[in-house]
Design a protein around this nucleic acid. Sequence first.
DNA 1: CAACTTTGTCAAGTCTCTTGCCAAAGGTCC
DNA 2: GGACCTTTGGCAAGAGACTTGACAAAGTTG
Lengths: 392, 392
Amino acid sequence: MSASPTVLPEKATHQQTRTFNQQLVLRALHDRSPLSRADLARLTGLTRTSVGGLVGTLIDDGLIEEVGRGQSSGGKSPILMRVAPDGRHLIGLDLGEAQFSGAVVNLRGEILSSIHLPLEGRSGEATLELLFQLVDALRADDLSPLLGIGIGAPGIIDTSTGTVRWSVNLNWAEVRLGPLLEQRYGVPVVVANDSQAAALAELTFFRRPRPNNLIVIKVGRGVGAGIILNGQLFQGDGYGAGEFGHVSIGGADAPCRCGRVGCLETTTSMRALVTIAGAAEPSITDEKGLVAAFRAGVPTVRRIVLDAARELGVAVGWLIGVLNVRHVLLVGPVAQFGDDWLGEVRQYARSSVLMLLARDTQIEFGHVHDDVVVLGASALLMEQQLGLGLVR
Amino acid sequence: MSASPTVLPEKATHQQTRTFNQQLVLRALHDRSPLSRADLARLTGLTRTSVGGLVGTLIDDGLIEEVGRGQSSGGKSPILMRVAPDGRHLIGLDLGEAQFSGAVVNLRGEILSSIHLPLEGRSGEATLELLFQLVDALRADDLSPLLGIGIGAPGIIDTSTGTVRWSVNLNWAEVRLGPLLEQRYGVPVVVANDSQAAALAELTFFRRPRPNNLIVIKVGRGVGAGIILNGQLFQGDGYGAGEFGHVSIGGADAPCRCGRVGCLETTTSMRALVTIAGAAEPSITDEKGLVAAFRAGVPTVRRIVLDAARELGVAVGWLIGVLNVRHVLLVGPVAQFGDDWLGEVRQYARSSVLMLLARDTQIEFGHVHDDVVVLGASALLMEQQLGLGLVR
DNA sequence: CAACTTTGTCAAGTCTCTTGCCAAAGGTCC
DNA sequence: GGACCTTTGGCAAGAGACTTGACAAAGTTG
């Protein structure tokens, strides 16, 4: 699975050259519109003639549009263009633990409409029905051409084939979600892990300039990371890269739902914190209660939560030390613990790795956004279909 | 440094198409010669006509050669070809801690001649002279056209500019080694970290089929890893990826030469083991003595060494858990501890990570080869100059 | 208003892959 | 041994995509 013995990379053709340059133009416009044909020529290194041709087909495809003349700089005033925001619409889905969310997203990553359907105990096959409902509803009242469907789901997901290899929360194993939906709806479908989707969302829509390397750690009921390296989503040999909620850490010995003890998840996840804090303060039974108690400054709760932050900090330090990545973002419900929590993570991350490496590393909260997974799934679809999104 | 704000990827041109396909052909021949033009056409998907043209220029360049007719399969017998082993020679250098090694390597990774020059206390500028001597001597009696010079050195190295950012052992900082040698010798020069070079050597010359992801951990005086992800060498934002000798691990509290305490290197490196074992058994003063005592079964020494193996195992488990990489190789002097040591690493690596991820992971010794760094540096040069080596 | 700049486009040229065809060289079958 | 088929390698013409050179349109500047 990991090796590619007989498969040679594809040959290069004229068609590919064309596609590549077309994506180059589209991408430039996506990142810094409005631009003129002449601007694009300077930016890409292509001739004005070539750009003219490429722009022509992009306009015919409805992907970009002219938006009027710009200021002259001593000659003919340029015709400015931008990505047509609604040249395509995308459907992004977030198969969460408690509910399925879906949204129609445009090419600028703006959410045009969204729906949330609670799972209500459904599991296995029954959840698929819910999924179909969601997509049907979103497709119903949308007119722009549909680029495809992007899906973020918890678990181990093979993005190359669109297969959910294994998902505890959904109780799915080896579900070929991508092909299934592709057949049903006749549009391209991409599937990714939810943490990976979060990373893609941050990279595509919120980080300028785009970092080459970015780790987004999602701390919710579980703990997982989306890892972008050399400008590409990194999934590992078994598509499980970043699923580090189940690596052992020193000291901890609580049993984990994965069957082992001392997993990172058993001390730092939201689920774990509710349990631990609940044992100390019986009034705490859910996330809301936990956050409220933390904010109110209940000493035992603060201690428990900040201890967890330190554990996570050490793990983050490891990541930084091993991968030397300068951009680490934390997303998920933990953001509610605010800067006290973040400060603790930062301090312990920095103290557990060489100063030289830690110095330039930014550890921050990601954009707090309920729809981050939906956006990320859309971002991946945009990347795969239009060449937008990731760094080349 | 990590971000690329204004820099767009290069446009695609005809020239690039040609180069790409030429490398495709060369690569196919490198991996599984001998092949005929028709074989190559089938393998690459190019037409026989195109392949004929590409092969023509490659032969003119002296990079490949015809090696006679092959068996007919019902028609005209094919003309078989292979990479001309000595179509180019490369100079590979290993700037080690105690000595500088250099070798002339051919396109098959065979070492044609090698030289070892002890450092003898030299440091800084003085080592540069040694470097020049080494290259001069290797160039002297070699006739094949020189493809370039590949260098592996300890420390933090910016491969993109050929700069040694920081090297404790060499006492170098911000040395623009690549440009320096390029100017002096008029050939391309690549520089990489020694662990990274080791990883490239394993990938290019010893692993078939080539894995997409590979981590090679070099345990010698220090501890460092070369990380290959998605078929590319991964260096991180600050070129320090894999330098995980200085991440903290639970339990340990010995002071490290980096100024902090509890670094992985303080318990698992060869240097540390000699020190620790020497304290327990005064007769042990160097690597040789340590290995001998371990092999002889001296109980205290075995305990010390195997404890270290466990520490390393946990660290490896982390790597596997976070990156989900299936191929992990261990290289360096530690290989002398043999399977007992390796078994310990394996066991602890597997126990500290999800079974699902650990199950398919291979943890093995790399090819024990004194010249692994020299070969790896050569491999990187071949990759950059000829498109051989890495996975595309 | 004349001269210069900048923009966008057209026609011809160049590069590289492909298609169609053919000769050379070998096997298979009678 | 000969007719026929298969495989290989290569030539000539064609097609796709970028570039070059030229030019008209539209601005600015003095």
